[in-house]
Amino acid sequence: MTTPLALAPGLPGAFAAVYAGQVSRAKASRGPLLFVATLQSVGILLLLRGVVDTGDGVTGQQIVAGSTVLVVAFVALNLLAQRFGALRGDGGLDHYAALPVPASAVVLGTAASYATFTVPGAVLTAVVGCLLYGLPLAHLWVLLLVLPLAGASLAGIGALLGLLAPRPELATVAGQLGMSAVLFLGVVPAERLPLVLQAVRALLPSSYAADALARALGPRVEITSLAPDLAICAVAAVLSLALASTAYRRAVRR
């Protein structure tokens, strides 16, 4: 004789509830950090405008694209790693462990809310970048593809780092290092990097997002030429979010 189980929310319902909660949380607490993220990227744009010869156009495209993706990395990778590291460290995951929620709903809902919050800063950075470097604004619609894909893949990595780190401080360090890698490897054009770093760059999904955006900022854009980079980004997003969901399941039941 057993008591019947209560109904559990499905993935869409649970995702929506987690997302709504996280967005509200972010409104209260993440505003200043978002400002810092945007200021950092705009600062890099200004700095490099002063010291780098961008006469070939391509360098400017890469700088603007890299700085835009950096906003995404700051929030979706760095802050999300810290968030999951803290939840794991202070017992916050128990709250979700005691609720009938699919693991993927918690990871996806939280990741999506962080990714959403990168949008205003990333758009602002891209627009300021295009104005500073004399690039066409017409193709910025590509951000509609680049931001979700970069956001999803970097949020997946951020969540994974936060959930795997044995201590919250290590999650913070991992998030910071990840963001630094995105900064350095995304802003500097690939061919100017040593071979070892080119290999590392090839492993970071943000590089493909930055490359796709950089190409889109050129004088002529062929959408088909962006497809391979965006496809890699999408695969990385699916993989990293799936791994993060597995890491979450392991972290909530010890």
């Binding site: 209560a6 559990a8 987690v18 929620v101």
Partner: peptide, 8 residues
């Protein structure tokens, strides 16, 4: 409210 929604 969110906790209630997550309880179904």
């Amino acid at each position: 409210e969110t906790t209630g929604r997550l309880r179904g």
